[in-house]
């Protein structure tokens, strides 16, 4: 028999009930089913196995078998992953799925094994929106001077500077308090995070900028992967793909529900006119291009040609 008794420690950073956690649970069920109960997947949520960088390093070293961080984290390994975070790149989820499911997504993942990681496909946290306490964002000028928490990532920091805000990198755990006290005016996250972290209690306005799509990369330790038989590899690949389908679907459903719940909790949600979005994109494009200059030109060209094709195919 070429399926052995194995245990996979699968870490993530979110709380129970979040679509990523549901994805991990789905994956665990599928693996158990396909392996006849021989391969067990144990879920370790809520950062109990450590921070993003610690867990990523643990996966590289084979101490932890799987992890599903944002692709933003993966850009520390292969910086071209930052292309996915290009602000205002996508207009809808079809474009996302076409890019990440196509040759660009594959090429990115092919860079991972030399860093000790095998990519098992893309899941999602979803589109990010802008929340603040001062006014609905209709025009780009409305963002001017807002003290905004962004992720500690140069592309994000520079992009939000270009949008006219005062970006502040701050640990997620300190964010609620900073917003409540007014130390910060604004933050940006997907609907589900704004809901589960109760930011609606401390932020009045949400503006649907959909400025960045946060994808998550399913990471598998290469040290572990190389011990597996072909059958085992196939089981895990299939389970990751199936769980991914499920995860993206439920994430998108939950985003709609979360949006309604945010409104029910008193948040004022407004859409942003297309010409304002175009203006914002014009402001951030030079930033993203500047970063892209330091990336592998082959991947940047592939990204650009793919995006051109995809925007035409899924307007």
């Amino acid at each position: 028999e070429d399926i052995k008794e194995r245990t996979i420690r699968f870490g993530h950073l979110v709380q129970p009930g979040h679509p990523l956690a549901l994805g991990v649970q789905k994956f665990a069920d599928l693996v158990s089913e396909k392996s006849g109960g021989k391969i067990k997947v144990r879920e370790f949520g809520g950062s109990v196995l450590g921070s993003e960088s610690q867990q990523m390093s643990a996966v590289q070293g084979g101490v932890q078998q799987m992890f599903v961080p944002a692709t933003t984290t993966a850009s520390a390994l292969v910086k071209e992953f930052s292309l996915i975070d290009t602000p205002f790149a996508f207009q809808n989820t079809s474009q996302v799925d076409a890019l990440l499911g196509g040759p660009f997504g594959t090429s990115l993942q092919e860079r991972l094994p030399e860093r000790g990681i095998v990519g098992m496909g893309f899941w999602e946290t979803g589109f990010r929106n802008f929340t603040n306490n001062r006014q609905p964002i209709i025009k780009m000028e409305d963002m001017r001077g807002l003290k905004t928490r962004v992720m500690g990532d140069p592309l994000f920091l520079d992009s939000f500077k270009a949008l006219g805000t005062n970006p502040v990198p701050m640990a997620f755990g300190e964010l609620y308090g900073a917003l409540e006290s007014g130390a910060l005016d604004a933050e940006e996250n997907p609907y589900s995070i704004v809901l589960t972290s109760k930011f609606y209690e401390v932020q009045k306005y949400m503006s649907e900028t959909n400025h960045v799509y946060t994808a998550n990369l399913v990471m598998m330790s290469k040290r572990f992967w190389d011990q597996l038989s072909d059958t085992e590899k196939q089981i895990l690949s299939e389970a990751a793909a199936e769980a991914g389908e499920y995860q993206r679907t439920i994430s998108r459903e939950k985003a709609k529900v979360a949006r309604d719940q945010l409104i029910a909790n008193g948040m004022e949600i407004n859409s942003v006119p297309q010409d304002s979005l175009d203006q914002m994109r014009a402001a951030t494009d030079p930033v993203a291009d500047g970063f892209a200059n330091s990336y592998d030109p082959a991947l940047v060209d592939l990204y650009r040609s793919e995006m051109k094709r995809i925007r035409a195919a899924y307007p």
């Binding site: 990523m56 520390a76 860093r115 990198p169």
Partner: peptide, 15 residues
């Protein structure tokens, strides 16, 4: 081992 694995990995903000 960890230093070796992280030879080409960069810190998010400072690089």
């Amino acid at each position: 081992t960890q230093a070796e694995l992280n030879w080409f990995v960069t810190a998010p903000v400072t690089g």
